[in-house]
Design a protein around this nucleic acid. Structure first.
Lengths: 258, 258
DNA sequence: CGTAGCCTTGAAGGTGATCAATGTTTGTGG
DNA sequence: CCACAAACATTGATCACCTTCAAGGCTACG
């Protein structure tokens, strides 16, 4: 028999609804009290009564990832979905041409691959890769089917997340025609706005120029040319892939430039 | 008192859940048997038992629109959502710069503004405009709250639609970096693939070059330069804003061009 | 110490934007 | 029915922005 950890990281089919014989195995995957307590602080899970919450995370486990580790691989069978607990993940879609496109940055409270759970078992359409040390609660498809699928409250929570992401897509699309400086500033402001402590002006995710380029579908060089200028002007400062916004009002001006 | 029709087209708040006194009024907005029969043929509503379906469309009405009429106006209060029965609608988002962006083409079976129903009452973020003669089933928010909100089957149907649209967004984003000919062919092929009779090579929606441009966030002139060439080469033919694909394999080649 | 990943800069080139002008079709009101 | 306006389609010339290609520097890490 394969060890639990190995299965876990390989993201292979772990559960079958109809098999009771592996329940002892499932138990090992359940959350500890400490872990359970941790997730109650995630915005997504608040408002749920403890008992219900227990069932929502049945047989789930928290995956801890370092910088740039693979959570989901595009093409793998979608046996589970995730709620981001801390850190961030980039959702990456490979293209025909070989260059990757970053579809979305999922930060704390965000769901990954949740929509797939309502559909027949199939492959993940995108890869999810951690950005900085991150944690995600991985919930097996079987638990979704058993406890989420028919619980309107859970569905509504997921729908709310989708709505938010849909709005982001719309804004993104509306900015397609804008100049590169505008699009970069929009991205930075968006990511900056996600952190809790709004007094900090540092983007809470390690972010390379390449990732910015992949997110905006432009080349690294173009991103660098814009951001180097900002650097010279003292508008931003980058240290260890952490981008600090020094001239917020200036950046906002660039963004709003009509 | 304002006439029902006026209220209807103005899309103002019509219902209050707690008021029984206006039930006679509501009755007037319900579907006739002929109308009800019509919607059972829409893909979205199949699989639902008749009784349940009756409740899902309670107090709903079918709006019939000519070419280029407004179904929803961005900014109006989102009192209802729609399922497209026939024809098509473009979902348009106005930008800071004044030029519009087409977010999505909603064709038969598609939902419009459905995600908003799970959220607090607010404005439509986008406008919906008919393309060619179209029909849409408008379902009031109150019916959603009463019958859709807590019915897992209905939620799953809506989620499936969202999933499809999300995939479209991803593909769209992945093509952002591609050349204009590639992006135009991708759009045409996508729209061509939506019709039932796959033998026809004519795109089932009246589509102007301007709309293609607005959908791809480029200028009309650029679109025209590409499509005029295709026209000369005999790959496409346009008659009354109906685009016919004559050289399908050639167009596919352009799309796949790696 | 060498490799790998990220960042940077420069020069040349192409793609699509912009601006301007004109033709065509459609719809509207006198 | 015609005149006029409005929306759509088209073409050409010029230009800005971003890409491409090439080269090199910096830092982290085994």
């Amino acid at each position: 028999m394969v060890a639990a950890g190995a299965l876990d990281t390989l993201n292979l089919p772990v559960l079958r609804d109809d098999k009771r014989s592996i329940s002892c195995y499932l138990l090992r995957m359940s959350l500890t009290d400490a872990e359970f307590h941790k997730i109650t602080s995630v915005a997504f899970f608040q408002e749920f009564p403890t008992l219900i919450l227990r069932s929502l995370v049945e047989n789930s486990n928290i995956k801890t990832l370092k910088h740039r580790e693979l959570l989901y691989q595009a093409g793998d069978v979608a046996n589970s979905f995730c709620i981001v607990i801390e850190g961030a993940f980039k959702l990456v879609k490979p293209t025909m041409r070989g260059d990757d496109v970053i579809i979305h940055f999922a930060t704390a409270g965000d769901a990954i691959a949740a929509l797939l759970m309502n559909r027949p078992l199939g492959p993940y359409p995108i890869s999810a890769i951690s950005m900085g040390p991150s944690r995600a609660l991985c919930i097996p498809r079987s638990t979704y089917v058993k406890h989420w699928s028919d619980m309107p409250e859970a569905q509504k929570k997921l729908n709310a997340l989708l709505q938010t992401r849909m709005v982001l897509f719309h804004e993104d699309k509306a900015l397609n025609k804008a100049s590169l400086p505008q699009r970069i500033s929009a991205l930075l402001l968006n990511l900056l706005g996600r952190q809790e402590h709004s007094e900090s002006q540092t983007i809470p995710i390690p972010l390379t120029r390449q990732e910015i380029a992949d997110s905006l579908s432009v080349t690294v060089e173009s991103v660098i040319r814009v951001m180097s200028l900002w650097d010279q002007q003292g508008l931003i400062h980058t240290q260890d892939q952490r981008i600090e916004i020094l001239g917020l009002t200036k950046i906002i001006d660039i963004y709003k430039q009509e």
